[in-house]
Design a protein around this nucleic acid. Structure first.
Lengths: 345, 345
DNA sequence: CACCTCAATGCAATCGATTACAGCTGAGTT
DNA sequence: AACTCAGCTGTAATCGATTGCATTGAGGTG
């Protein structure tokens, strides 16, 4: 299907393939007259480089691979968009893979990307432990940056946000709104984001004297359904605390919905917070208070690290960077205003 | 970075590269003893094929390219997921590109995919007219299937749903719910889906005697913001009709929100319908009545067509297929039950 | 005029896997 | 014993672009 080759262009222009290559890739010196002839011939024939052949020769593909746990999670989708944008500025393209939250599929994707000679890989690992072998092995072969989530005990670059700091803001805000007890709804502790967020939650709750009953830490997965189920369980097992702190927006949307379905007013009776600031958190009823992640910054840093790693090569692979950006709390209507209502204090 | 080559495996196993290749790609006959030696050597060295080199030789990449107008639109995201799944069954991978709804970016993506020797391309064109040159040109070089949307006047395979039939269901349902007037909120007529949906809307409205004022056909883009803006405009310019028929769910979500913000009850005072059945349409308040697209079927058909086209090659490129699947109406709470309330009739 | 410099260009090797063709070996045939 | 043939295996060409090295020739210098 790929018809026109550099040889045909060379023949038509009456020069050698070397010259054509030099003209088309702007390297080496070529006289103006020849350059014109070559360009002319290339245009006439509708020549397009064969990226595959070039990649084989150069072992560079100008392509970066990205693996995310789930492409249907709006947070990752918008992260992907940011990454693609950042890469575009460097003339690179993105090869996107969905791991379906399964470390085995993830491992296959990583291997396949490596076999395709991508210049680097950006991955948000599906599992804090089980993802390790594949991630580590891939990182040994080519530049790799972990994004948002990370695998325990791997030594690669990482970019994400400071979950602990974010949770502190969330808890302070809830406390200001009068919350004196709270539940945490997250995913199983199988990936770093839940772990970190829970750690931040627990620490600040303790400092503020917010009560967290042991059976009010519920772990499932990042989905609306789980948010609904978790709230149903809380209600069945003794009622809701003052606040529901959710590990992501999907859970929070489900939780809010379940609260209202069971007749609990949000935020009057229960405050709810999310995490990620996906587009729909703004549209929910009530609009969700959540933590905004600086996606463009995250993406830009990841791309920068990757570029740096490509240059450094095997040589002086210095210590790996862990870039932690500061997220911001977005206060909307699922939590109460700063001044605690007098009847609660 | 790619270290282990077939030559190294060959040396370690004490055979030629040809034999290694034969073992690893399961072609040609090789004695059991040699096969064992080779596999052993390959494992020891951690050999992985270089997909690039193989692709250059075979001019097949086992990769399919997909271009969508916007990766942040949940409808396309889930379509992508379905396609990836369908491809996975055939051992193929997906190279995903976002056109940002810009035909120029789209053209670049298509060219780049072609240069990468993908085996085929699945595209949902951004623009009904401006996307034509690039799509047609790409289709001339390799197998291409249009999905969901299509470009006017191109001759390629297409898979999508019967928008007109879907709109008939929507209108019948609204009519049953008592609607005697309606507005249409869509995108500019720059892509086929809005065109088709509007055509179906208008025709059935006429047949049912539902009034559609000329200035109540509002065209913007597929976004929540536009849905909100359109409703604001309708209210400012003389009030809402009985029903708002939206060309996609994002618009419908925005429209619903705006209605409620302006004090109009949905569905008691205004019925609202969407299109696509994205996940959040279920979560909205009230849950959105919408048209469900059979995404897995669409994806499966597209992949099938692509495979068929790859086999047929340039040879007997028969007439192109246009596969139109039947979508289903999903009735939720943003429309009224079948029996029209007596006070409306 | 002999000799040197340097820009322009071509030749041919290279990236790694695949495969047509040829060569070899040994079992089976007559 | 000579011959056939199938089954293995190796040699080398190939895919298309890039690039180190060699070659050419124009212009410059003493």
């Amino acid at each position: 299907m790929q018809r026109v080759t550099i040889a045909q262009v060379a023949e038509r222009a009456g020069v050698s393939t070397a010259t054509v290559s030099r003209v088309l890739s702007r390297r080496g010196q070529v006289s103006a007259a020849v350059e014109r002839k070559v360009r002319r011939a290339a245009d006439d024939l509708g020549y397009q480089v064969n990226v595959i052949a070039r990649a084989l020769r150069n072992s560079r593909t100008d392509t970066v691979g990205m693996v995310v746990p789930s492409i249907t999670n709006p947070f990752f989708t918008s992260l992907v968009e940011s990454v693609e944008h950042a890469l575009g500025k460097e003339g690179k393209e993105l090869f996107l893979c969905d791991a379906r939250s399964d470390p085995r599929i993830e491992a296959r994707r990583l291997a396949s990307l490596a076999a395709r000679n991508v210049d680097g890989i950006i991955v948000s690992p599906s599992h804090g432990v089980d993802s390790r072998p594949a991630v580590q092995q891939t990182a040994d072969r080519l530049p790799l940056v972990q994004l948002d989530r990370f695998v325990d005990g791997t030594t690669t670059d990482w970019v994400g946000v400071d979950d602990v700091a974010a949770m502190r803001q969330v808890m302070d805000h809830l406390h200001d709104g009068g919350a004196r007890s709270a539940a945490f709804i997250g995913s199983l502790m199988t990936h770093s984001s839940t772990e970190q967020r829970f750690a931040g939650f627990r620490r600040r709750a303790e400092e503020l004297g917010i009560e967290v009953k042991p059976d009010q830490v519920l772990l499932g997965d990042y989905s609306v359904e789980w948010g609904e189920a978790a709230v149903a369980r809380l209600i069945a097992e003794g009622g809701l605390p003052d606040a529901l702190v959710c590990a992501d927006d999907l859970i929070a949307l489900g939780a809010t919905r379940a609260c209202r379905a069971h007749g609990f007013a949000v935020p009057q009776q229960v405050q709810v917070t999310g995490y990620d600031d996906i587009e729909f958190s703004r549209l929910a009823e009530p609009a969700l208070t959540t933590v905004h992640q600086p996606r463009d910054r995250i993406a830009a840093e990841a791309v920068r690290l990757l570029a740096a790693a490509s240059l450094a090569k095997d040589a002086e692979r210095g210590p790996h960077a862990r870039i932690s950006l500061v997220p911001t709390l977005v206060v909307r209507d699922s939590t109460r205003a700063a001044q605690a209502p007098p009847d609660r204090v």
